[in-house]
Amino acid sequence: MPYSRPQTPGRQNPIQVGWIGLGAMGYPMARNLANHRAANLEQQPPLLVWNRSKEKSEKLLRELGDGKVAIAENIVDVATKCDIVLTSLASDEVARSVYKEIAAALQARSLHISAQPPTKNTIFVETSTVSSALVYGHRELDLLISAIPHCHLVTGPVFGPPAMAEKATLIVLLSGDYRSKKEVAYMLVPAIGRRVIDLGGNVEKAPTFKLIGNSLILGSLELIAESYTIAEKSGVGQDLVYECIKELFPAPLWLAYGDKMLHNKFDGSIGFSIDGGVKDATHIRRLSTEHNAPMPAIDSAQHHLLTARALHDAQARTGTTRFPVLDWSALIVGTRVAAGLDGFDTAEVSSIHPH
């Protein structure tokens, strides 16, 4: 933890925390936060949650009970009632839409206060993976929030897939106002993550670093996929490449994704969806263009992601797909097809050169 414990004499307990967005990452993060606060902090109000589809909010309420979770009627409720609001959103467009609605609600509240304006701080923590053209997107979000007295935006994307979100072992990246970061850091670790990395006061830095980190993951997936594919074409076999990974590169990420590719475990509903992979690859390539820093591995990875998604869409139209949503490790389907192999059927791939 890069911060000393916060001293907040101006803030009075209890602290109302809100959460907007209960997707594949947001749901387990919100659940862990609600559980942690209930178990470790006395007399705190339930986590106030909102999601576009109310079913997910209701599911979380059923799972945890009304002592830990309450459902907001709308975004305005969360924006105006909470001291700290965390958002986990699907895309730049959704983030801009949500924060414009938040800003409008806060501006309207300020206009209706006849006496003194509010003096307590409200902190907004944007945890999504958003683009860095997005550099400009975050300036837009920051301007929306910072224009309102006593409101601060902290960018707080996280490293880790849904499985790490479930276990509260994510790595949290924070950039923005120092006092706000200090306060939310102690709320997020260990409730949703195991470590905080401070990227400084520029709100653009955390989302930019998140994209750079994701480029390492995506580049690794591309390298594993290419190695598996040439192993099959040459008759060595991808199973032996996985043995090599276990012996020489036994990193958790390589082991997990190597196993998924080896056994065609492409179920995106329990992993990271290929749509998310295409989105991240697009953001990373835009970042590389902005800074004139070529990233050819990411170029190849995006092509293979798009190929895999197109083939999956074609299967879905004929009712022959095995998975409703593809995991981004399915980019190996693109490398296999490019090499003239069957994309989804490992048995057919391996029969070309039996051991």
Rank of each mutant, 00 (worst) to 15 (best):
A206K: 06
V154Y: 10
G200Y: 01
P162C: 08
D198K: 09
F209H: 11
A165I: 12
I197M: 13
A163C: 13
V172P: 02
K167L: 04
L174V: 02
P161Y: 01
D177A: 13
L199R: 05
E204P: 05
G176C: 07
G200K: 02
M164E: 15
T208H: 01
A191K: 00
K210I: 14
K167N: 04
N202C: 01
I171K: 12
L211S: 13
I197C: 12
L153A: 09
T208F: 09
M164A: 15
K167A: 05
G156Y: 01
V154M: 08
L170M: 15
L188A: 00
R195F: 15
E204R: 05
P207N: 10
L170V: 14
I197W: 13
G200T: 00
P161T: 02
V189L: 03
V203H: 07
L153F: 12
D198R: 06
I171S: 13
R195E: 14
T169M: 02
A163D: 09
S180W: 10
I212F: 12
D177V: 11
T208R: 03
G201P: 02
N202G: 01
Y178C: 13
A165N: 12
A206M: 09
K205W: 02
F209Y: 14
R179D: 13
I197R: 12
K181L: 06
N202D: 07
I171D: 13
T155I: 07
P190R: 05
E183D: 07
R195S: 15
V203A: 08
V172T: 10
S175I: 00
F159C: 07
P162Y: 02
P157Q: 08
L211M: 06
G201V: 05
